[in-house]
Amino acid sequence: MILSVNGIEFRYGSRPILENIGFTVQRGEFLSILGNNGAGKSTLLKTLNKILSPKKGSILLDGQEVSKLSRLAIALKMAYVAQNYESNRQTVFDAVLLGRKPYIKWEATASDLALVQGVLAKTGLEEFALRYLDELSGGELQKVVIARALAQEPEVLLLDEPTSNLDLRNQMEVLKTIQTAAKEKNIAVIAVMHDLNLALRFSDKFMLLQNTKVFVAGGPEVMTAENITQSYGVSVSVERVRNQIVVIPM
C-alpha cells in the first residue's frame, strides 16, 4: 500500500468541501477520481501532497504521515501535475529538467540530463527539446508538464485533469504514456478525470465523488448506469462495445 487516506475533512470557512474521504491505492494502480464540477475532486488531490492541509483525517504515504513530512520529502515520492500551469519563456528541456529539482543539490548532473532525455523520448517530445514553452500548442504543453512529473521519478503520480486540453489522438497518447510508465515503474496514479470513457479505458479503480463525499468506490464493477446516473444526476446507459465498457448519456 503506497497511499492510504483515512477520514479526510476539508472546508473553506464554514463551507465543507470534503467530508470523511477514505481510500487506498496500491503501487502500479491507476485510480480515477470522478464526479461533477465542485464535487471536491481537485481539492482532494491537493490535500494528498500537502498543497492544502486537511482539517481532519490522515494520509499515509508509504506508511508515513504526509502532514509531518517536509515538502521536499513529499516531492521525492509524489509528483503533482496541476490543472492550470504556466507557459513561460523556458525550453522544454529546462521545463522537464525542473522535475529533477528535488534531487538537485547545486547543479544538475549528467545522470539528471540523461534521465530527462529518456523521458523526452518516452513522451515523444524529443524534437521539441529546445523549443520555448510559450511557442507550444496546448497538447504539447500538457505533455511537457506530464514529462516533468515523470522526470521526478515519483512513486505516486497525482494528475489534475491530465487530458482536458487535448484532442482525441493526444488524449490517447498521453494516457497511454502514463499507463505504460505506471506499469513499468510500478507508480500509483491518481487522476482527476472528466471523461468517463477515458477513465474506464485506462484506470483500474474508480472513485465517484458527490457533494463532498465518496458516493461509491471500487473496480470497474462500480461503474454501473445506476451509480453514474445518481452521482452525476444525468441518466446514462453503460454498454459493452468491442470488449470496451462505454458510458452513453441518454
Binding site: I51, A75, A82, L98, G99
Partner: peptide, 20 residues
C-alpha cells in the same frame, strides 16, 4: 535559483516540486 525556476512555473507546481 532552482527554487525560483520552480516558482516561475506556478506556485502549486513549485509546491509539488518540494519548494517551500
Amino acid at each position: 535559483r532552482w527554487n525560483y525556476n520552480a516558482l516561475d512555473s506556478g506556485a502549486e507546481t513549485a509546491k509539488g516540486l518540494g519548494v517551500n
